[in-house]
């Protein structure tokens, strides 16, 4: 098990060096985006987010944000389920040159192919651990589509320090999620066979 510290934006080499199971502490700018954001990025192809996303990271997260003294602060920011973005994410990676997707639950084959093709990585964050992730946020830099999408669905641009993740899908075609799912199915099949034969 290796723990690496990485600073966004990331290079192809940074990504190639990552393998499933590696621990990564990520620093720099990440952008939250979930269901409405992915539709927006694919359908409207907005230019104003290009610089921020290029070689950068999207975080599947709908945070709790509070405005205090005219300044936004991040109260809770754990990951949301990534698989809902499976129809869109491969296009987002290609269109914006993303290097990192942070989320929970993993993604499917379409995204896995895009990770290989465009040198990107899927980083796992622990669902429900919202305070730990919120506390890595040093500042809230900007927000896109707040009025249109509301707080959970807006694209929050966050500067983070040592955001802890686990590589669960790498650019070499490996997926921890696929491995676990296959193993659980095999275990179930053998359990059922034992039951039938017993």
């Amino acid at each position: 098990m290796k723990t690496k510290k990485l600073q966004l934006p990331l290079s192809i080499k940074d990504i190639s060096d990552l393998h499933i199971g590696d621990r990564v502490l990520l620093s720099g700018i990440i952008v939250t985006g979930r269901d409405m954001a992915h539709r927006w990025l694919v359908d409207e192809k907005p230019d104003e987010v290009r610089d921020t996303l290029y070689q950068g990271a999207i975080y599947h997260c709908g945070p709790i944000m509070l405005k205090e003294n005219d300044q936004w602060s991040c109260k809770a920011a754990g990951p949301t389920t990534s698989i809902r973005e499976e129809p869109y994410l491969a296009d987002v990676i290609q269109e914006y040159g993303l290097r990192c997707i942070i989320g929970k639950g993993g993604m499917g084959e379409k995204t896995q192919e895009a990770l290989i093709k465009h040198h990107a990585v899927y980083l796992f964050a622990v669902g429900g651990a919202a305070v730990i992730y919120a506390d890595t946020v040093e500042s809230v830099e900007h927000v896109y589509q707040l009025n249109e999408f509301g707080v959970p669905e807006a694209l929050w641009v966050l500067k983070v320090k040592d955001f802890p993740t686990i590589v669960s899908m790498d650019c070499h075609g490996n997926s921890l999620h696929r491995n676990v799912e296959k193993k659980s199915k095999d275990l179930l099949i053998s359990a059922l066979q034992n039951f039938t034969s017993g």
Binding site: C61, G62, P63, I64, K75, A76, A77, G78, T80, V126, G127, G128, A129, A130, V131, I132, A134, D135, P152, P164
Partner: peptide
């Protein structure tokens, strides 16, 4: 370990332990 640390932090700081309430 992350989960259990987060539970303690959330209680201490009186902040939502998960953002999806």
């Amino acid at each position: 370990e992350t989960i259990t640390q987060n539970i303690v932090l959330a209680r201490e700081k009186s902040r939502p332990l998960c953002q999806d309430t």
